[in-house]
């Protein structure tokens, strides 16, 4: 579902945020992405959402080579990904309900269903009473849970979280991980970036560890594919045939 082939990302000549990263996340997998602050976790997730393009290498997500994707296809591609952004990215001008309603509009969900779906999504994160609050009237943790509700609202094919429990206390964190697990059971492929070792240890999920832009460890996955040779002659699109 998510395939990185020798991906390097440089922001300027002197620093490399990601260095020759190759990994595969198959459909239905649940993995943690971990590493120290500045290791390149956010950069990797941004590449998946095609917020930016890699300097070198290929990223294939949901069968599509992101380097080759047409700009007009980008919105439709992104609709299949539920993303919990590190900085939440809620629309401050809109209430919690309107934020969720907007995403449902984006997803072409009939307006008749907005109330019901938004309420259900907020219930899942225990924030149904904040329906009419504005994001800035909420605590960091509450905003984060709204962001989680938004990412989950329409059962995305791929669920990505950038430190999705970074602002939550341990109990709530565990609760949120349970929500992600439920989404995983419903069929989403999940990748969560976190530096919370406790959280990772308490679950026995696959873990990909980044260190200064390189993959230093992969644990728990079925396949161990560090330094896999580039499949010669095969188009990258076909690499997703397994999903």
């Amino acid at each position: 579902m998510i395939h990185f082939y020798h991906v390097t990302k440089k922001f300027d000549r002197y620093s490399t945020a990601l260095h020759d990263v190759t990994f595969h996340l198959e459909k239905g997998e649940f993995a943690f992405l971990t590493g120290a602050s500045g290791a390149g976790k956010s950069t990797l997730l941004k590449l998946i959402l095609r917020e930016m393009l890699p300097t070198e290498g290929q990223v294939v997500v949901n069968g599509r080579n992101l380097n080759a994707m047409k700009k007009r296809h980008l919105p439709f591609f992104r609709r299949e990904i539920g993303m919990v952004f590190q900085d939440f990215k809620l629309i401050e001008r809109m209430t919690v309900f309107e934020n969720l309603s907007f995403i449902l509009t984006v997803l072409n969900v009939s307006p008749k269903e907005h109330k019901k779906k938004a309420y259900a999504a907020l219930r899942a994160v225990n924030l149904q009473h904040k329906l009419n609050a504005y994001p800035l009237q909420l605590s960091g943790g509450e905003q984060q849970r709204v962001a989680i509700a938004r990412a989950l609202i329409n059962d995305p094919l791929i669920l990505i979280g950038d430190e999705p429990t970074g602002n939550l206390d341990p109990d709530l964190s565990a609760e949120m991980i349970q929500i992600f697990s439920d989404a995983h059971l419903r069929g989403s492929t999940v990748l969560l970036a976190t530096h919370d070792r406790e959280l990772i240890r308490s679950s026995d999920r696959r873990v990909i560890t980044l260190d200064k832009g390189r993959i230093s460890r992969m644990e728990g996955g079925e396949t161990h594919i560090e330094n896999e040779p580039r499949p010669s002659g095969t188009p990258f699109l076909s690499a997703s045939g397994s999903k």
Binding site: R79, I91, R93
Partner: peptide, 18 residues
Amino acid sequence: LYREEIEIMRLVGATERL
């Protein structure tokens, strides 16, 4: 004024028309 918000909309999959 809405620049940031427009960027968010793009990231969550809103088309330019929307």
